[in-house]
Write a protein that binds this DNA or RNA. Structure first.
Length: 592
DNA sequence: AACTGCGGGCCGG
DNA sequence: CCGGCCCGCAGTT
C-alpha cells in the first residue's frame, strides 16, 4: 500500500451522515485513505510491498548514513516490491547477491553500491503448457552472450514448435526492477525498486542443471548440483512447515522444468515473512534456496484471446498443442483499453476494471465469469483461470531491439474539482459535469452493489457497516472515476491523456492537470500518486521520531548510525531532488 | 562456458 | 546531469 500524505483543508463533516452521493464518495475516499498510512513528514518511501507487517525500513540505499544493524532479516530469495532488507555479512547468499530473479549487473557508476536489474524470464512463444502443468519460465542467462543464444531457441516443451521469447521486466516504471546491494561493515543492505511484472524464472540451480545436462549429456542432476538440489529440497521441505496452504491456490513443483518427476502437485501459497520471526544478529539464514517453482499463470501478462494483440493472433494459431486456460474473461478496461491491458471493448458495466499489477494482486479481475465479485484476493486468484494484462513486449530472435519504456514514468493523478456547494453543477467544463455525474452514478452503484442497500439508509460513516470499505479497494475507486467515461458518451480525448490512448506498451498512468486555485466555496478532491523526492534523511531524526523499524531495532549501547567509510557523496548518484519512482499518494481535500 | 563484478562509454530524457 | 544500458575485461565457478 502506498504511503499517503493527507492534507485536509477546511472542515469536513466526518461524523455527519452524508446523503449527497458526491460528498459520500469524497467521504468514502477520505475514509479509505485515512486508514492508509498517514505521515506528517515527507514520505520518501512508498513500498508497494513493504518488508512485512512491520514497518518497512526507512533508510534508502543511497543515504549517506545507514542505521546500525542490531537485527537482520532473513534472506529473501524472491524480493518483490520496493523492499529493503538488511542481511548479515555472514549470509552467503547475501554476500553473493543471490536472487531468484535473473538479475544482471548494471553499472550505476558507484563502486560502493552494486546495482542489478532484472532480465525477466524466457517464455514459450506459443505459451505452451508442460506435461507437469506448468508454463515455460526459463531463466535468462546473465551473460549477454549466452542470453542471446537463448533467444529464439526451440521451446523445450515436448511437441511444441514454439520458441523462447524473453519477457522483459518492466516492473519499475517501465524499466526493469532493480536491486541494490551495499556492504557496510558487517551488514549488507539490500533495496529493491519495482514490482516484477512477469512470472518467476526457474531457479538458478535448475538452469545450471539443465545446462550441465546439456553439456555433459548425462544425468541432469549430478555432482555439486545434485548436492545443492538435495539441500534445497531439504530446505524446502523444512520451509513447508511455515507456509500457508491454500488448496487450489497455487501450484508448486519442486522438480526442474522439463524434468518433473513428481507425480503429485503440491498446492501451496508462498508467503513472505510467514512467521515474522527474525533471529538476532548475527543470525544467518540458510544459504541455500528452496527448489520451488511458482506456477505463475503466464497468461497474466499475456494478451487475451480476443484482443488485437498480434502475439496471440500470430502465435496461437500456429501452436501445435497449445493449452490455454479455458476462460478468457477479463474485466473490461474501457478507459485503458488497448493501452493498459489489451482488454476487449465489450460493454461491460461491472466494476472495477482498473487493475494494477502489484505483486500478489496480479491483475486479476474482481469478478468471476458470472460477474460475481470475489470475496477476497485468494478466491479471486484461484477462481480466475486466466487474467492477464499484457502490456509487454517480447524479445524474439528477430527483434532484439529493446522497447522503450513509456515516456512518462510518473504516476496516477486523479482530480475532480469545481464542484459547487450543492454538487449539482460543475462550474467548469462540461466534461467535468459529466465526470461528476459519472462519479455519482458509480459511487451510488459502488455502495449499492457492495452493500446491497441504498444511500438513504446510510447513517454513520464510521459505524455503519455500509460504509465499510473493506471490500472497496483503491483500485475500485480509481476505477469508479475512469471506468466508462470514454467508452460511452464522452470524448475519450478530453479525459484521457494521450499517453493512455496510445497503443504503446507498458503501464499507463493517468495524469490530469493540477488542481487550480481553490474557490472559496469549493468542494474538491485531489488525489495524486506521484514520485516522491528522495529525502536524505538525517538518521538522528529517524531515531528521534521513532522510525527505527522492526528490522533494525535500536538497542542500548547500539548507535543508530553507521557511517559508511566507503560512502562518498556522489552527485551523479544521489541527486538531492531527483525524482525517483517511489510513489506516494497525495490527497488534498477541500471542503468548505 | 558461464557467472560475477567493475568500469568506460554512449544515449536519451 | 542522470539513469539505463551496452560492452569489454578479469577473476571466479
Amino acid at each position: 500500500m502506498n504511503d499517503l500524505k493527507l492534507t485536509r483543508r477546511g472542515t469536513f463533516p466526518l461524523h455527519e451522515p452524508i446523503r449527497d452521493p458526491h460528498k459520500l464518495l469524497l467521504q468514502k475516499l477520505a475514509n479509505i485513505l485515512s486508514r492508509m498510512t498517514l505521515t506528517e513528514e515527507p514520505c520518501y518511501q512508498a513500498p508497494l510491498h513493504d518488508s512485512g507487517p512491520e514497518k518497512p525500513h526507512k533508510w534508502d540505499i543511497n543515504d549517506s548514513t545507514l542505521p546500525m544493524v542490531c537485527e537482520v532479516d532473513d534472506f529473501q530469495e524472491w524480493p518483490d516490491g520496493n523492499n529493503r532488507f538488511v542481511y548479515s555479512s555472514n549470509c552467503e547468499d547475501a554476500r553473493r547477491h543471490i536472487s531468484g530473479w535473473a538479475m544482471r549487473n548494471t553499472n550505476n557508476h558507484n563502486a560502493h553500491i552494486l546495482k542489478k536489474s532484472c532480465l525477466g524470464v524466457f517464455v514459450c512463444s506459443y505459451d505452451c503448457t508442460l506435461p507437469n502443468g506448468e508454463k515455460v519460465h526459463l531463466r535468462p542467462a546473465i551473460c549477454d552472450k549466452a542470453r542471446r543464444k537463448q533467444i529464439g531457441k526451440q521451446c523445450p516443451g515436448p511437441n511444441c514448435r514454439g520458441h523462447l521469447e524473453l519477457m522483459t521486466c518492466k516492473g519499475h516504471c517501465g524499466y526493469p526492477v532493480t536491486h541494490f546491494w551495499r556492504h557496510i561493515n558487517i551488514a549488507i543492505f539490500f533495496q529493491a525498486k519495482g514490482v516484477h511484472d512477469h512470472p518467476r524464472p526457474e531457479i538458478k540451480s535448475s538452469a545450471e542443471a539443465r545446462r550441465h545436462h546439456k553439456l555433459k549429456h548425462k544425468s541432469p542432476v549430478s555432482g555439486i548440483i545434485h548436492k545443492k538440489r538435495k539441500r534445497e529440497m531439504l530446505w524446502s521441505s523444512t520451509k513447508e512447515r511455515s507456509t500457508k496452504v491454500y488448496p487450489g491456490f497455487d501450484i508448486l513443483c519442486s522438480c526442474p522444468p522439463f524434468e518433473c518427476t513428481c507425480s503429485h502437485v503440491r498446492m501451496q501459497y508462498k508467503e513472505t515473512h510467514v512467521d515474522n520471526e527474525r533471529a538476532n544478529f548475527p543470525l544467518c539464514p540458510a544459504s541455500f534456496t528452496p527448489q520451488i517453482y511458482e506456477a505463475s499463470p503466464s497468461p497474466w501478462q499475456r494478451p487475451t484471446m480476443d484482443s488485437n494483440y498480434t502475439y496471440n493472433a500470430v502465435h496461437r494459431q500456429h501452436a501445435l498443442e497449445p493449452t490455454f486456460p479455458e476462460n478468457d474473461n477479463l474485466p473490461s478496461l474501457s478507459a485503458f483499453n488497448s493501452s493498459f491491458a489489451n482488454t476487449p471493448r465489450h460493454a461491460d458495466t461491472s466494476y472495477p476494471r482498473f487493475e494494477v499489477y502489484r505483486g500478489s494482486d496480479r491483475g486479476l479481475p474482481y469478478t468471476d465469469t458470472s460477474g460475481q465479485r470475489f470475496p477476497n484476493p485468494a478466491e479471486r486468484y484461484s477462481r480466475t483461470p486466466k487474467s492477464c494484462y499484457d502490456t509487454r513486449d517480447f524479445y524474439s530472435s528477430s527483434c532484439l531491439e529493446r522497447p522503450k519504456p513509456f515516456s512518462d514514468p510518473h504516476s496516477i493523478k486523479i482530480k475532480t474539482e469545481n464542484f459547487d456547494s450543492e454538487f449539482g453543477n460543475i462550474s467548469s467544463l462540461s466534461n467535468q459535469c459529466a465526470l461528476t455525474n459519472r462519479i455519482e452514478t458509480d459511487s451510488n452503484r459502488l455502495l449499492r452493489e457492495d452493500n446491497g442497500q441504498e444511500f438513504s439508509q446510510l447513517q454513520d460513516i464510521d459505524s455503519n457497516p455500509l460504509y465499510n470499505m473493506n471490500d472497496v479497494t483503491d483500485s475500485d475507486l480509481i476505477q469508479t472515476f475512469f471506468s466508462r467515461m470514454p467508452s460511452e458518451q464522452f470524448d475519450e480525448s478530453s479525459f484521457i491523456p494521450s499517453s493512455l490512448t496510445q497503443t504503446n506498451t507498458g503501464p499507463k498512468y493517468i495524469e490530469l492537470k493540477p488542481l487550480k486555485k481553490a474557490k472559496s466555496e469549493m468542494h474538491s478532491l485531489a488525489i495524486s500518486t506521484s514520485p516522491q523526492l528522495f529525502q536524505h534523511r538525517n538518521v538522528h531524526d529517524v531515531s528521534s521520531e521513532g522510525y527505527s523499524t522492526g528490522h533494525i531495532r535500536s538497542q542500548p549501547g547500539c548507535s543508530n548510525v553507521v557511517n559508511d567509510p566507503y560512502y562518498h557523496s556522489d552527485s551523479h548518484q544521489y541527486p538531492p531532488n531527483k525524482q525517483s519512482c517511489n510513489h506516494s499518494i497525495n490527497i488534498t481535500l477541500t471542503y468548505n
